[in-house]
Design a protein around this nucleic acid. Structure first.
Length: 347
DNA sequence: AAAACGAACAACCGCCATGTG
DNA sequence: ACACATGGCGGTTGTTCGTTT
């Protein structure tokens, strides 16, 4: 209550906060129409407003500007936003430049309140713009539980609860590996050798784990089984030069395959795809955006990625965030470091 | 009728990049 | 090269309003 009083009782020296009154709006409009905004910092005093310059700027750019289009977003605008978001991520200002009359703030709000939900209802992850697969993890739960000794669970529930957590982490890692292997094995056979870029530690340790889990049926049933001969092939060719590209490796992560992005000198983007399509591989999609630790990955999808690979290293950093734990921190750091040092990774 | 709740959106905050002296 | 000012940006919070109980 005291806080309420504080905000309503205006100190002359402290710039006012909160909603703008029609009178304030009119003062701002009048001043800018007569003089232009000039320096935003100087504007409030000159316009007779008890606001900070920043507040005036935001009020003008987001609400009062005469070229602002208000009202509901059209279907076409919706589609443009969705398409651009798939490419640009949360680059609201860049998206706004392709929607005349709409502000970045308006688009951001519209995304957060409408489009995000709409995509979720359609079963599309609003972060990755791919079909959601977080249920895949849930689908594995019965197998995970089966893997744990059920009688022990009854006798000693706490010990088993502690055991189960690392198993889940390991499973997540193996899913990651599985996806990498699938991408590699779907490429020409020589590219399978590229797995070696992950380094001997990774290869020996994780492949063994992968095979073990596969043998024990801990990988989800719909996934392609990697044959042992392929593993042997990988293991026997350590020295071959690498041809793998981020596009190859991440074709599973990003739906950029058929996407063309155009950018003009005004930083305006255009895309030539309707809606990103799922690829043939089981996607490597984080769970819901709200609880995912790899949300940042969507930021890695930007037009620059298409023309060069400047953000590849940060993509691997995101992987690092996902994968890290104390037990195998060094192992995964090795992987990330090695991947980052590849020719296609520009730091 | 009114309290509780949730959706929508305006506004703010903090960080960062850029320009300027 | 450095410090400072300014403006842009994305994330978050606060307020309002409609709906439900």
């Amino acid at each position: 209550m005291q806080q309420m009083m504080k905000s309503t009782t205006q100190d002359e020296n402290v710039p006012k906060k909160g909603p703008w009154t029609p009178e304030e709006d009119q003062k701002l409009i009048d001043y800018i129409q007569k003089h232009g905004h000039g320096s935003w910092r100087a504007l409030p005093a000159l316009a007779g407003l008890n606001r900070c310059g920043k507040s005036c700027r935001l009020r003008w750019t987001n609400y009062l500007r005469p070229d602002i289009k208000r009202g509901k977003f059209s279907e076409e605008e919706e589609q443009i936003i969705i398409n651009l978001h798939a490419v640009l991520g949360n680059k609201w200002s860049a998206i706004a430049q392709n929607l005349p009359g709409r502000t970045d703030n308006e688009i951001k709000n519209f995304w957060n309140t409408h489009l995000k939900k709409k995509l979720l209802q359609m079963g599309i992850d609003p972060v990755t713009h791919r079909k959601r697969t977080d249920l895949n993890i849930l689908a594995n739960l019965p197998q995970l539980l089966a893997a744990a000794n059920f009688s022990n669970l009854i006798n000693n529930p706490w010990e088993n609860a502690l055991r189960l957590q690392p198993d889940a982490t390991q499973l997540a890692r193996l899913h990651m590996l599985h996806n990498i292997l699938q991408v590699l094995s779907s490429s020409p056979p020589s590219n399978l050798d590229a797995l070696n870029f992950l380094g001997p530690n990774f290869r020996d340790h994780q492949l063994q784990e992968y095979l073990r889990m596969q043998a024990e049926g801990l990988l989800s049933s719909g996934q392609t089984v990697l044959e042992t001969k392929d593993i042997g092939h990988i293991q026997s060719n350590n020295t071959q030069n690498l041809e793998i590209t981020p596009q190859t490796l991440f074709s599973d992560c990003h739906s950029m395959k058929d996407t063309k992005v155009y950018a003009n000198s005004n930083n305006q983007y255009g895309t030539s795809f309707p809606v990103p399509q799922p690829t043939h591989l089981p996607p490597l999609v984080p769970a819901s955006p709200e609880c995912s630790t790899v949300n940042q990955m969507d930021d890695k999808i930007n037009p620059n990625d298409i023309s060069n690979h400047s953000s590849t290293s940060t993509t691997f950093e995101a992987w690092g965030d996902l994968m890290d734990d104390e037990a195998s921190e060094n192992l995964w750091k090795d992987i990330i470091d090695q991947a980052s040092s590849q020719p296609w990774s520009i730091s």
